[in-house]
Nucleic acid binder design. Structure first.
Lengths: 202, 202
DNA sequence: TCGCACCAACCGACCGCCCGGTATGTTTGG
DNA sequence: CCAAACATACCGGGCGGTCGGTTGGTGCGA
């Protein structure tokens, strides 16, 4: 018989183009403001193809989220389970996040702009995955607090949410054409995150 | 003299109810997902009333932004122009921001969710006001850097955007029913912002 | 003190467009 | 020869927006 399916995500050239087009359009104009006609036109397919691969416009959005979250969670998981003290692993995770941000800039934009629109039965799965990601992050913070590397007078949930907020919003103001590369921005944000704006009293 | 047995609302009150209803609905469901019918139903007016006060659904959204931005800018302006060193004024400004956040929680939610939708000629005015607000903030950061209160190895624009991102995203995860009050959250975020997560080496 | 003209404020039935989605036909790789 | 992978024509609905009509308050001349 046929070999086992290699990818959990269904493949197909047309499908890829649809996802790519939808990601760009959702990011640029927002989910609601993007029509299915725009998507199929940009992907150079027809509505038949689109509704062959996706049962609805919302499932298309959800699948973008799933792919993004799955990859990010996987990478964070690997780093989180690695060796070294918690604060070092956290630093690693953030650096890694910035290093791979260019590849998913559009998907991140979609996420930041339209994540609140996911509803129905799709919502639970996406939300669960999102919480899993956040928990991986937060566990690192809490571990760092226990070992004394991080302050514990600020709740780990505040630390985590604040920092992730800063990251997810980057697309709103950052331009790669500016004075900073994305990697340099990452360095500065990590520095800010770790030591704050106040000049360290020596 | 016959009093008005029918308590018809005074003039202009309908407008306020429309804005209030739209703010809540835009915040809860998003701008695009909210219909004009929902708005007028929630505000207990008719479409005629709504289109008497606003020329379009988008102008209604824009007016929410304008009111929010005008007030926030005004308050920041007052604090920024006040006495004291820059870092103290910045602290004051942030504290003030959190103190008045409850009053505008819904409008802030709308802003965070749908600000990217403002377009056309409305866009320039809103964007200009938004940049004015950010500049007031950023000037304080830069002044603090010059006086040595703040580190200058991180660009002021990075500092400003990162912190404002953290604030604007609060609505996504914070619940007043949780372990923290909004004021306490403000304290923790300011502390985090000033000194970072790293335990200060003593 | 009226009568009357006027107008902002508001009503609500209605419109045309375009959206997401579907039904059915056609190609194509294995 | 049969699904899978598309294409095409089409639909009902609901959307933002419109428009002629209706109020209640107000100023004003006689």
């Amino acid at each position: 018989m046929t070999e086992q399916d290699r990818a959990r995500v269904p493949r197909g050239e047309a499908r890829d183009r649809i996802v790519a087009a939808a990601t760009e359009l959702f990011g640029r104009y927002g989910y609601e403001a993007t029509t299915t006609r725009q998507i199929v036109e940009a992907a150079q397919v027809t509505k038949g193809a689109m509704y062959h691969w996706f049962s609805s416009k919302e499932e298309l959005l959800t699948s973008i989220y799933r792919e993004l979250l799955a990859e990010q969670t996987g990478r964070l998981q690997a780093i989180s389970a690695g060796p070294g003290p918690a604060d070092v692993r956290l630093h690693l995770a953030v650096t890694d996040l910035f290093a791979h941000m260019d590849d998913h800039a559009e998907a991140l934009t979609v996420w930041a702009r339209s994540m609140h629109l996911v509803a129905g039965e799709h919502a639970s799965a996406v939300r669960a995955e999102r919480r899993r990601y956040q928990h991986l992050f937060q566990d690192l913070v809490e571990e760092g607090q226990k070992t004394g590397a991080f302050r514990d007078d600020v709740l780990a949930t505040v630390v985590t949410n604040t920092f992730l907020s800063g990251i997810v919003q980057i697309y709103r103001w950052f331009s790669p054409d500016g004075p900073l590369t994305r990697r340099e921005l990452g360095e500065q944000m990590v520095a800010l995150f770790l030591d704050g704006v106040r000049s360290s009293a020596e």
